[in-house]
Design a protein around this nucleic acid. Structure first.
Length: 641
RNA sequence: GCCGAUGUAGCUCAGUGGUAGAGCACUCCCUUGGUAAGGGAGAGGUCACGCGUUCAAUCCGCGUCAUCGGCACCA
């Protein structure tokens, strides 16, 4: 006699165990039609699930996030079903739900083509139209293994064989297609209406590059057509802010074949870089860091001692001269230790903070290069803090606060915190790792930050906090890092004289706020879609003459603004003002200044702000004041940075 | 690095087994025009690179490089 409690608080009493579908029917025919799954006591179940005891129940429809998830999961099965119909000798593997969609990995004798994708999508629609019931079956594990082996599904059999033997497993069947799945699924394929296959790509079996490569088909699926259209539109919009595209359009940088993974910075791009660097230099200066500069190339033996050679020699660029082997530095820390070691340090000197805009080179795998986001030559805002164990916590807390302020200044106010703990391949005693991990956890607690643990993702010499910012369209970018290192200072012989007059090894904290300049500028570009705030904009204003008669005045305006420290250019070309406005508008400059005879006579500039906002003619001094006001990072007062 | 796709003018792209085309940009001329493209003329390409097949290759085949989409990697 189950009593079912619904989300609105009402209760329904049933005389006998009853299915979720029947409960939905008892509530209303419309709801029954819309029902995709149920949520019983917080757990997602099929509509066929029978409620035998008192429970809370919600009917899941396409309006719920859970409903969309079920649709995507079932769409993955629909995809596999279609592939098996069209390519019977393809083998299925896994097909999970991902953000905005799903994918399914297949093993097949040849790669799928874009034409295959169209055929598969068409077949999916046909199968959906058949409205095949999707039914759940519970099997004994070993029976399932035998079954899948028997129908030639070796991968599926392998997956199931990995499940504990005493565990029953659930299979879902729709027509001739049957697949291992935890579920739940939609009650029939007819519920799947809004989906689209997006792309085909290679992916390793079980995510391991030592394994064979499978064919992965990505798809998107939604409850409502409008949502899918909005999603596809969002993708188009995201493409418009692609930093590679904007880098060309705004003439910021380029890359070319002769230097894969290395950036040629153009005047405007380099100006943008300079603004970021000047800001970060100030961050160093005002927060107790001493800026230094170390060599690009260092003897191989140094990298052997630091442990980098052992761990990363395949990814290091090397060179040789007169019987000596060298490597381009992939990191700045060993260099900073050399500066630290250049004198005898006392505990009174600690903490010592060094900062460098260190240019590093790493021979990244060719397939990983991506615009200026993933490159082989990059510059970090890299800092190292030498301190005692007792000072770690305070340094970490201060650093987190500093990072938050910097991100805010660049317009990012959402940060995700993760702690990456010891990896399998590492140096140093476990006791030291215990201490280091504990220090990081404690510091985030002290900072009041919510965080998650990312087990095994630490660096080989120490654990780290990973700071991930979210951009204007919600994409996460891991930029900042704070790493506690009890190992490398010892490897490279850093020490200090403590109160006890004995020599001790300092702890080293590795930290970077924006990470790689190249990548961060790429992120800024995509975040602002190229419309940088005034303080970052490579060109803050463009003075444009209407005719030759104002050329001299336009130049004098530019000179005046430049004299006040602003980045100004002039456009005196023999072109119509419409033409000039269009051109510079597309360059997304913050201000366009039109000067004609009227402005010339009045000592004014006609100001057009970005986005076609007409501010009208205003005196030069007034405009200058406006620029001054906007030429500092938005949130924090630079005097406090 | 792995799977797949792509590589034609500065940019975005057509195109063909008989050595190439558009729009924009560029140069010159006309135009001096008040808030998102004024008109005309012209110049510009070893069709990524190498080796094959062919009477003939930008096109077909193989290899290399780079880029793009994923996967793996990311100190």
């Amino acid at each position: 006699m189950p009593v079912v409690r619904l989300p609105d608080g009402s209760e329904r009493r049933f005389d006998a165990p009853v299915s979720v579908a029947a409960i939905a029917q008892s509530i209303g025919a419309g709801l029954a039609r819309a029902a995709l799954a149920g949520k019983v006591n917080g757990e997602l179940v099929d509509l066929s699930h029978v409620v035998a005891e008192d429970a809370s129940l919600a009917i899941v429809t396409e309006r719920d996030a859970d409903g969309i998830e079920v649709i995507r999961h079932s769409s993955a099965h629909l995809l596999a079903h279609a592939v098996k119909e069209l390519f019977p000798d393809a083998q299925v593997t896994i097909g999970p739900v991902i953000e905005n969609g799903f994918y399914y990995d297949f093993s097949y004798k040849r790669p799928f083509t874009p034409e295959d994708l169209i055929a598969i999508e068409t077949r999916m629609a046909e199968i959906a139209k058949r409205d095949l019931p999707v039914t759940r079956e519970v099997w004994k594990r070993d029976d399932a293994v035998t079954f899948f082996k028997g129908i030639g599904e070796a991968y599926k059999a392998e997956i199931i064989a990995g499940i504990p033997a005493d565990q029953n497993i659930s299979l879902y069947r729709q027509g001739d297609f049957i697949d291992l799945c935890r579920g739940p699924h939609v009650p029939g394929t007819g519920k799947l209406k809004i989906f689209k296959l997006m792309k085909v790509a290679g992916a390793y079996w079980r995510g391991d590059s030592k394994n064979e490569m499978l064919q992965r088909i990505y798809g998107t699926a939604w409850g409502r057509k409008e949502d899918q259209d909005a999603y596809l539109h969002m993708i188009e919009e995201a493409e418009k802010r692609d930093h590679r595209r904007l880098g060309r359009q705004l003439d910021l940088f380029h890359v070319q074949e002769e230097a894969p993974g290395l950036v040629f910075w153009h005047p405007r791009g380099w100006t943008l870089w300079q603004q970021v660097e000047a800001y970060m230099r100030r961050v160093y200066r005002d927060n107790g860091y001493m800026e230094i500069r170390c060599p690009q190339i260092l003897d191989r033996t140094l990298w052997e001692r630091s442990g980098h050679w052992e761990n990363y020699k395949d990814n290091m660029f090397t060179t040789a001269s007169e019987n000596r082997d060298y490597a381009l530095k992939p990191m700045n820390c060993p260099g900073h230790i050399q500066v630290y070691k250049s004198g005898l340090r006392s505990y009174r000197d600690l903490p010592m903070r060094y900062g460098e805009f260190g240019a590093c080179h790493r021979n990244e795998p060719s397939g990983s290069l991506h615009g200026i986001m993933r490159v082989r030559g990059f510059t970090q805002d890299d800092g190292h803090i030498f301190c005692t164990e007792d000072q770690i916590l305070e340094e970490c807390v201060a650093y987190t606060a500093l990072l938050q302020r910097v991100y805010r200044d660049f317009g990012f106010d959402s940060i995700i915190y993760k702690i990456a703990t010891r990896p399998a391949k590492r140096v140093g005693a476990d006791a030291l790792w215990d201490k280091a991990e504990h220090a990081l956890i404690e510091s985030l607690k002290r900072s009041g930050c919510e965080f998650e643990i990312s087990a095994g993702d630490g660096a080989f010499y120490g654990p780290k906090i990973e700071y991930t910012l979210k951009d204007a369209i919600g994409r996460p970018w891991q930029c900042g890092t704070m790493q506690v290192d009890f190992n490398m200072p010892g490897c490279l012989g850093a020490e200090y004289v403590a109160e006890d007059n004995a020599r001790h090894v300092p702890v080293m904290l590795h930290r970077a706020i924006i990470g790689s300049f190249e990548r961060f500028i790429g992120i800024l570009t995509e975040n602002f879609a190229g419309a940088y705030p005034v303080w970052l904009a490579p060109v803050q204003s463009m003075v444009m003459s209407i005719t030759d008669a104002q050329a001299e005045y336009a130049l004098s305006v530019a000179t005046k603004l430049r004299g006040a420290g602003f980045r100004v250019e002039t456009d005196l070309r023999n072109e119509k003002i419409n033409y000039k406005i269009r051109e510079h508008s597309m360059q997304k400059l913050p201000y366009l200044l039109v000067v004609g005879d009227k402005e010339k006579a009045a000592g004014k500039v006609a100001v057009r702000a970005r986005g076609g906002v007409d501010l009208g003619p205003i005196p030069i001094e007034e405009f200058l004041g406006r620029l001054q006001h906007e030429s500092v990072p938005a949130v924090s007062d630079p005097s406090h940075v």
